[in-house]
Write a protein that binds this DNA or RNA. Structure first.
Lengths: 299, 299
DNA sequence: GTATCAATGAAAGTTTTCTAACATTTTGTC
DNA sequence: GACAAAATGTTAGAAAACTTTCATTGATAC
């Protein structure tokens, strides 16, 4: 009993009464403006009474029309992505109240979707090109987000020269801030916890004219007018505090973009770097996948 | 005076007060889920009062938050906002070959699902309990995976004492390896690139009897008989090489588990740590979410 | 035809959401 | 550092949204 709103509406069509069927039909065709409706406004539109709307939602298994809307929000809907029935099972458990986790899963999935959407924006393309071509690339992040910066830097280093991780260890960020702005760019990973540091850095970078890309959570209230691109990653997954985990996917996608941009010419470099790592850390395999992409032409 | 909601929000950023700017930014970041919010729920998320939300909407020229939503309806227009629709769109592009990346999305989603499945296993529970109770917790990862270890360590430190990140900087891993095995445990984040180091460490740890949890990719061929728990995270997402991004989700889930295990008694500590961070990095907000879980009893 | 029952609506009650008035805090100024 | 002005939070009350109860309608069975 954990069908999506759309599914429930569709199945209800078979058995529903006249008024209910009208409602179901209307809702299905106007699914996308449903969140803006209220039980009363809906009732008026299809010319039934308000209680009928409420009752209908209850026969569908929701507590009220508002409850239906709430489900719509989390509704990832249809099977296509249903990775087997494993997920369904998780969701059913969640519905039974046994599993707080499953609700978080849906939120993480929807965060992933947003990230892949970001990767289709013009800003994304701009950043990727910049990361591929600017001589000096700096990335920075504090505390947890440092890990994200590290992912970006490590992988980019396989692909190109001049990629560095910034650090407050030196006491200032002189490294970037006194570099030639035309030759440098900066990526900041941020979450609300560490706002001030990131913000100060962004301000200074703007002052000297270094392009800044900010990856942050929806709570960031200072980025928009300071940075060149701002990528907002959802971070609320029903956990006891926010999780920036999905920023890692974003970092990887960025790196992948740079790879596509640079094209096969990086392969020689990758060989060498791989060998070096191998020499110092005992790695034996190849980091490069054998996916079709790797041989393909750059985008 | 017929600007779109987005435009109005953006222009307001220039002149708005602090709370208003926070609101505007958040709204801009979460435009697509705004219709589901209510003035109160929004207020709670960005931690301002309810009337502030109403007032802000009025300064934007709307009658109320509800009125803003009504206008949003026109703005959002045809653009799909339901996660299911957005996902479908990406999938269609992938199928049409227009979007190389989108093909990887499904794989990432399914990786996420497997992680949430892991979180339901007895091994998981065992690790969580161990991470909550063992006096000394060590985590380690090399290169990219170092970022994952960092996530775990950073967040665990909010919750408890005695959590450390291991490092090869010292040349050996003496720190763990000569500690009292009954008082220590170790989490290794690994991907095939750095197999040897991780493996050597695991071997030594086993020798001295320290419990080891291994988080790795599906290519790891040495873990099973060496470690106490082995969590395998999918890493092939159609990118030019493997991505361990979803390990970040795993790390976060682990931390969340420990939080639930420790229960409300950690809140005092969290307050202190938060304050310390604030002192040194200028963080001003609260890291703790106000989700229902946070107040709830431990699992 | 009429008795019965499901479906629906009307009206009144309850809860949620929003607003107005006032108190408090913050910010800026001198 | 004290004052004024602006911004924000608190409290309580108005409005809206939703539910419940009960009356009415209209279909179906006999």
């Amino acid at each position: 009993m954990t069908a999506s709103v759309r599914e429930r509406l569709t199945t209800s069509l078979a058995t529903a009464s006249k008024a209910d069927r009208i409602l179901a039909n209307f809702m299905l065709s106007e699914l996308s403006s449903l969140p803006f409706e209220t039980a009363a406004s809906l009732a008026a539109k299809v010319d039934v009474s308000e209680p009928t709307v409420g009752r209908f939602c209850r026969t569908l298994g929701y507590k009220s029309f508002k409850d239906l809307k709430d489900h719509l929000k989390q509704d990832i809907g249809q099977q296509p992505w249903l990775v087997s029935d494993r997920l369904r099972e998780l969701r059913e458990r969640a519905a039974a109240g046994e599993d707080q986790l499953a609700a978080g899963l849906e939120l993480e999935i929807s965060a992933l979707v947003s990230i892949y959407e970001l990767a289709r924006t013009p800003e994304w393309t701009r950043v990727v090109k910049r990361l591929a071509s600017t001589p000096n690339v700096y990335a920075v992040g504090f505390q947890t987000e440092r890990g994200m910066a590290q992912i970006l830097v490590n992988q980019l280093q396989y692909l190109r020269d001049g990629v560095r991780m910034l650090d407050l260890a030196g006491g200032s960020f002189a490294e970037v801030l006194v570099s030639d702005p035309a030759q440098s760019c900066l990526v900041i990973f941020e979450a609300r916890r560490y706002s001030r540091l990131s913000r100060d850095l962004a301000i200074e970078a703007k002052k000297v004219g270094i392009p800044v890309t900010l990856v942050t959570d929806p709570f960031c209230d200072w980025g928009r007018d300071l940075v060149d691109e701002m990528f907002v990653v959802p971070t609320e997954f029903n956990q006891f505090w926010e999780s920036t985990a999905q920023m890692a996917s974003l970092a990887n996608l960025l790196v992948n973009g740079v790879f596509l941009e640079l094209g096969p010419k990086v392969e020689a470099r990758m060989e060498i770097v791989t060998q070096l790592y191998s020499q110092f850390t005992g790695y034996v395999g190849k980091p490069v996948n054998r996916t079709s992409q790797s041989g393909g032409k750059p985008a």
